[in-house]
Design a protein around this nucleic acid. Structure first.
Length: 877
DNA sequence: CGCGACAGAGTTTTT
DNA sequence: CTCTGTCGCG
């Protein structure tokens, strides 16, 4: 136990020792909160003689739970007796025991978001409401928010008053609730909500659990919602030994109902609370922390804290602006390869973080193209794929005959000749008599109008009955001794239904993919069964529950040497030596939603998200943005994120072109070189060229060659650029080879090798002055505004040469386009353009290589708060 | 009842 | 761009 005290700092020790009564630990990123929690558990067991059985720790993900369990076990024997689980898993376990009090069967199904949408859709049809008026997605969100606020359908109806629409929404909510209950199903929110309802209605049940959980710890407390707070309060009410750990600056789940006030006002609810602040960061270098602090400082209403670290300054945070998403991805992947090649990192030390899952594709393509092993976390969940959902629907139908949604899903999959009309009749019959769909199916001979398909329907009923026997599902929900293992059961389902016949008309690639997914499901099922820790063999319900509650991140193995690609949300709680925070663009991050909403809280949440992203990095942090990216089929141009701008210049090494095409590095002349003909060369067409540093970079190099006499155009491949002294330097700078280069004027890195750039002769050449000059301007103008960029760049740089070149004088690699349509622009059909000039002076070079193109530009003009989009449709001439 | 063709709409983050 | 829903035909 000695090590408990020696391996902790004073504050941490204080938190560990304070075991009785409420405790609020405000732990900054990387301040060792997991360490505190695990040691606290160990201390409770070893020193205070508390039985592990009486200790509960709530984590955010199953992965975190698993890690915590492991670490506790490494500290003390019997550590595995501690209840460590997520909120949702905890509630499921409680509900499986006691939900019959609330009139549900303990084999209830858990509905995911897709299921919820389906229910809403069905409800709309039943109520005869226009689905265009009430969007599924919005309705699901609405229902979730009401549930999180613990508002019942009755209350919602009352609250709606005479508001017609509000009333209708409340009725949808009401019908939705009814349907779930009919189906013996709970949605995610219900898991928490019903548990609270159970505790509030049945004090003896509550007391039972209160006596069990005498010491409660909640991790990531800043992301708890009202229901979770209520749940924890109820459980902790008796013994009051509640320890919550969190960081208000890392609250990023407001959209999901998380209420930051839970942490900010914790002391109000528990007046005798002891507060401990952990501010020493053991994760990141000061350079990274300073950047994080600089960003988060812009938020109001925080608990004041300042993270510090003893790990030294480290490398500056790097920022790079690229022409497009491809080049950004290319840079990131090249950077990773380089770190791995030089032995500085393993693949798994690198994480690529972004705001939206959609951004993953470019990185994935790039990784594939470069043979970099990667793993995408999140996005389209494995369990949401069609074929997987189909097979799970079979399992659910087998396990819970009341789950109409699942029955309905598979009734005619694969096709059995049971059409919509017949199904509608079955459903009507069931609704009339209060039966489940499965019961109506068994009754098919009595269903009016179903006789034509009756034989087929009976066949289906038989099929399910047989599968149920094989699965060993007994009427009471328990499992028979003699049964197929889950993976065999899935195989059997595929076999007897001839499921693969549904894949026939797909192209080969898709078909193989789906078969692979099915095989993957089988192996997951087998694995689940083999590793199940519970009393007795797992039930089918156990397996389905596990499927419903696993997050993608849970299956990430530390032993896997792969680059991780994920959203910033997904990276919460993780840390990496190398972090690439990508897509730092207004509109993407912060997202339009937050910019447009007008609610400052939305922006603050985005900023916290940025803070989370930055603080994932231990040693190297790269921020990047693309000026242009393809979204939903057309080109979007965005400005550099305000979050980048919130980081002071001196903390940021913005190599080359924070602001435009390779401009910064060239200072005075840079504004000119900044043109770089970049758009067309870096364009999507020219993918291969960008693989070697981007056509854009080469073109910049071309400019440099005029300035510095270096021939650089065909500067070799990615691997051998080092061999050429001068040219490679320009290559490097333009191509983003080294983020540090900006700080020192570029070139240096590749000449001196990785580590000794400081000593490089190039270190402070003319380059440097240029970059300084440009750097000063970087945030002044719109990134597309060459005029501004050049102008404001010159004062600190070389005033003479940098003075306001007219855009059209710049050598352009661009083509001429004819305007076909334009909105909010001073152009009309028939105009011929090479660039588009906007009302605020922003100029967009139009050199895209596509035949026709549509351009959507969004930016906020100075002095005008509202965002607007300009639009142009152009035709290449 | 099933299939193919077409139009239209939706685009943040997730246990 | 991609996914969904609708329509009309066999």
């Amino acid at each position: 136990m000695q090590d408990i005290f020696t391996s902790l700092n004073d504050r941490q020790r204080e938190a560990v020792l304070h075991t009785e009564g409420p405790l609020l630990i405000l732990a900054g990123a990387g301040a060792g909160k997991t360490r505190v929690l695990t040691h606290r558990i160990a201390y409770l067991i070893e020193e205070k003689g508390v039985a592990p059985y009486h200790i509960m720790a709530i984590t955010f993900t199953n992965k975190a739970a698993g890690e915590m369990k492991e670490r506790v076990q490494n500290l003390v024997p019997y550590g595995d007796g501690v209840w460590v689980a997520t909120f949702h898993a905890t509630c499921v376990r409680i509900l499986r025991r006691h939900i019959s009090f609330l009139g549900y069967g303990s084999d209830f199904t858990i509905y995911d978001t897709d299921d919820q949408k389906t229910v809403v859709k069905n409800v709309l049809k039943e109520l005869n409401y226009d689905p265009k008026m009430f969007k599924e997605r919005a309705m699901v969100a609405y229902i979730s928010s009401l549930k999180n606020a613990m508002t019942s359908p009755e209350d919602a109806l009352k609250d709606a008053g005479s508001d017609f629409r509000g009333q209708k929404e409340a009725r949808i909510y009401e019908a939705y609730e009814k349907k779930l209950k009919q189906n013996n199903a709970l949605d995610f929110d219900d898991l928490l909500l019903k548990t609270v309802a159970l505790f509030e209605s049945y004090p003896e049940v509550l007391e039972n659990w209160q006596n069990r959980f005498r010491y409660i710890m909640v991790d990531e407390y800043q992301d708890t919602n009202t229901v979770q707070f209520r749940l924890v309060s109820l459980l902790a009410k008796k013994h009051r030994n509640l320890c919550v750990v969190g960081d208000d600056d890392q609250s990023i789940y407001r959209f999901r109902g998380a209420d930051i006030r839970n942490i900010l006002e914790f002391e109000k609810y528990f007046p005798e609370t002891k507060v401990v602040k952990l501010e020493q960061n053991y994760r990141s270098t000061t350079g990274i922390l300073d950047a994080a602090n600089a960003v988060i400082r812009h938020n109001a209403g925080r608990k004041e804290k300042r993270l510090w670290s003893e790990l030294g300054k480290g490398d500056p945070v790097a920022f790079r602006l690229f022409e497009n998403g491809q080049q950004e991805a290319e840079f990131v992947v090249r950077k990773i390869r380089e770190a791995v090649r030089t032995g500085k990192a393993a693949y798994k030390d690198c994480a690529v973080l972004y705001r939206t899952n959609a951004q993953s594709r470019l990185f994935e393509e790039r990784c594939l193209g470069s043979d970099v092993p990667y793993r995408i976390v999140g996005g389209v969940n494995f369990y949401q794929r069609q074929e997987i959902k189909d097979l799970l629907a079979y399992l659910k139908t087998i396990a819970n005959g009341q789950d109409d949604l699942s029955t309905r899903r598979i009734l005619n999959v694969p096709r059995r000749g049971i059409g919509d009309t017949t199904i509608a009749r079955l459903e009507a019959y069931a609704a009339d008599r209060g039966l489940s769909l499965m019961e109506a199916i068994r009754d098919v001979r009595r269903v009016p109008g179903a006789d034509r398909a009756a034989a087929k329907i009976e066949g289906f009923a038989r099929l399910i009955a047989e599968l149920r026997t094989e699965a060993g599902v007994l009427p009471d929900g328990r499992m028979a001794e003699d049964r197929l293992p889950f993976d065999q059961l899935i195989k059997e389902i595929v076999r007897v239904t001839d499921y693969e016949s549904t894949l026939e008309d797909l192209d080969e690639e898709k078909r193989d993919q789906k078969k692979e997914n099915i095989a993957e499901l089988e192996s997951k099922a087998r694995e689940f069964e083999e590793t199940f820790e519970g009393e007795g063999p797992p039930t089918l319900t156990d397996f389905l529950e596990n499927v419903a509650l696993v997050a993608d991140i849970d299956s990430v193995e530390d032993s896997d040497d792969r680059v991780l690609l994920m959203t910033i949300h997904g990276s919460k709680g993780l840390e990496f030596p190398y972090v690439f925070l990508c897509g730092m663009e207004e509109g993407l991050f912060p997202s339009f939603m937050s910019i447009d909403s007008g609610d400052p809280m939305d922006m603050e949440e985005e900023r916290r998200l940025c803070y989370v992203g930055i603080t994932r990095a231990k040693r190297h942090l790269f921020l990047s943005a693309a000026k242009c990216r393809v979204m939903h089929g057309d080109m979007i141009f965005n400005k550099v994120s305000r979050f980048v701008q919130e980081i002071p210049e001196d903390l940021l090494a913005s190599s080359g072109d924070r602001n435009g095409s390779g401009g910064r590095g060239l200072g005075g002349g840079g504004s000119f070189a900044g043109y770089g003909g970049s758009y067309d060369r870096g364009g999507a067409d020219d993918y291969r060229s960008s693989a070697y540093g981007g056509a854009y970079d080469r073109s910049s190099a071309g400019y440099r060659s005029s300035a510095y006499g270096s021939a650089s155009y065909d500067r070799g491949s990615a691997e051998d650029y080092r061999s050429s002294a001068y040219g490679s330097s320009s290559y490097d700078r333009g191509s983003s080879e080294d983020y540090r280069s900006s700080a020192y004027g570029g070139a240096s890195y590749d000449r001196g090798g990785a580590e000794d750039y400081r000593s490089s002769a190039y270190g402070s050449g003319a380059y440097n002055r240029g970059s300084a000059g440009y750097g000063g301007s970087a945030y002044g103008g719109s990134p597309y505004d060459r005029v501004n960029a050049a102008g404001s760049g010159s004062p600190a740089g070389r005033p003479g040469s940098g003075s306001r070149p007219e855009p059209r004088q710049a050598p352009s690699f661009g083509r001429t386009f004819e305007v076909q349509k334009a909105e909010k622009l001073d152009y009309g059909p028939g105009d011929r353009v090479r660039h588009i000039k906007f009302g605020d002076g922003t100029v967009l070079e139009v050199t895209e290589g596509k035949r026709d193109m549509e351009v959507t530009v969004r930016f906020d003009t100075a002095g005008e708060k509202r965002m607007f989009a300009s639009f142009a449709k152009l035709k290449k001439l």
